[in-house]
Computed example of a mutant assay.
Amino acid sequence: MPRRPRLTGAATAALALGLVAAAPAPGSEPPVGDARVVARFDPAAGQRPENIAPAPDGSADLTFAFARTVARVAPDGTRTTRATLPAVTGAATPLVRGAVVTGIARAHDGTLYVNYATGTRATGIWRISPGGAPAQIAGLPPDGFPNGLALDGRRGVLYAADSVHGTVWRVPVSGGPATAWAHRTELRPARAGAFGANGLKVHRGAVWVSNTDRGTLLRVPVREDGSAGTPETRARGLDGIDDFTFPGAGRTVLAALNGSNQVVLVGRDGGHTVVLTAADGLAGPTSVAVRGRTVYVPSAAYRVQRDPNLLLARLRYHFGRL
């Protein structure tokens, strides 16, 4: 958010245990630990890591918002530039003014999709094919702010959250006109000039969206015909929530709270527990990703104005389908 994931009785029991979201016993280790900062970035060069897509080799692709770049960061902190979005003359992006690269999604073949917010016709979703140059595949309203982005490979569509218009846009993965898939009060900011719909994930038949200004986490069911169902508020009181992820197959969520400089674990009942703080190295976390047992947290330092970084931690518990 720029600022100016036939049996015997014994086998059945074992399976049931494997499907339960594990909860730490009293006195046991916290669910996330072993945090360490593996890379630090230069804010003067626009290197504010906004969103993240882990790669199969353990590295991660990051959008550097104001540098208009996508960089790959290896687990040892080594980084290379994957792509640079074209400069825009007269950028007038709502909320931030300058041109910014925001959400990122990764396809199985390594193709990357990113949101580019500029206040011009360049605003929209851009594709970065392996070894290729960025190409715009869909336009979005120049007076909006495309933020979180997710790929639904089964349906062959991309979803983008618009923080200004309180809208989730849907675009064919092959490119083409964008459709306002969901446009609801729950997705809009409560105040003028604030960020509404922000982070976005596709998970178990629904599109999940965070609303930064309202501090809420929403679940929007995808109906059989592909249309949007009625939004359900799954959690409240998440101050400055940005993007988030699912650490397992269930409804447990790891969320970045930019406003309070925390990463929290949100349970299926909507309650949340702090699992990472500034003491672990956070500096305004913007998103969270999980691959295997590795937790990735980029911090853009928009508020604290120092030490944007990438933090890695370890997920100590398994979270199943509940």
Rank of each mutant, 00 (worst) to 15 (best):
A74V: 09
A65W: 02
T78D: 13
G58V: 04
R72E: 08
A53R: 03
A74N: 14
G58Y: 06
A60V: 11
G77D: 07
A55F: 01
D42Y: 04
G58R: 03
G58P: 00
R72V: 05
A87E: 13
T89D: 12
L85D: 05
V88P: 00
L62N: 02
V70C: 12
F66E: 00
D61S: 14
A39G: 06
A60D: 11
R97A: 15
F41A: 07
V73Q: 03
T102W: 05
G90D: 06
P86R: 08
V101M: 09
D61G: 10
T89K: 10
V73S: 05
A60G: 12
T84N: 06
F41C: 05
P56V: 12
A87V: 09
A65D: 05
T78W: 12
G58D: 04
A44E: 15
G103R: 03
G98F: 15
F66A: 09
P86N: 10
G58F: 01
T84Q: 15
R48A: 12
E50H: 02
E50L: 05
T81M: 14
R68K: 13
P86Q: 07
P75T: 12
I52E: 00
N51A: 04
T102C: 11
L62R: 01
V96L: 06
A87R: 13
L95C: 13
S59G: 13
Q47V: 05
S59W: 09
A74W: 12
A45V: 04
A87H: 12
T102V: 15
R40A: 13
R68F: 10
R48I: 12
F41R: 00
N51D: 14
A67E: 13
A67T: 05
D61M: 12
G46Q: 07
T102E: 13
R40G: 11
V38Q: 06
R97Y: 15
R68C: 02
T80W: 01
P43W: 06
A71N: 08
A55N: 11
V100R: 01
F41Q: 10
A44R: 15
V88L: 05
T93P: 00
T80G: 11
N51F: 01
T63Q: 08
V70W: 06
A39V: 11
G98T: 15
G98W: 15
V88Q: 03
F41G: 04
A55Q: 13
A55K: 02
A55M: 12
V100C: 05
V96H: 09
F66G: 04
R79I: 05
G46F: 06
G98I: 10
P86H: 11
V38C: 04
R40P: 08
V88A: 02
R79S: 12
P75D: 13
T102R: 08
S59K: 02
P56H: 12
L62V: 01
A45T: 02
A65Q: 01
R48Q: 14
A44F: 07
G98M: 14
A99D: 07
A92K: 15
A87G: 11
L85S: 09
V96K: 04
E50C: 03
R68N: 11
A83F: 08
P49E: 01
P43H: 10
L85R: 08
A71F: 00
D61T: 11
T81D: 14
A60I: 04
V88W: 09
G58W: 01
T63Y: 00
G90A: 13
F64H: 07
T63L: 11
V70P: 00
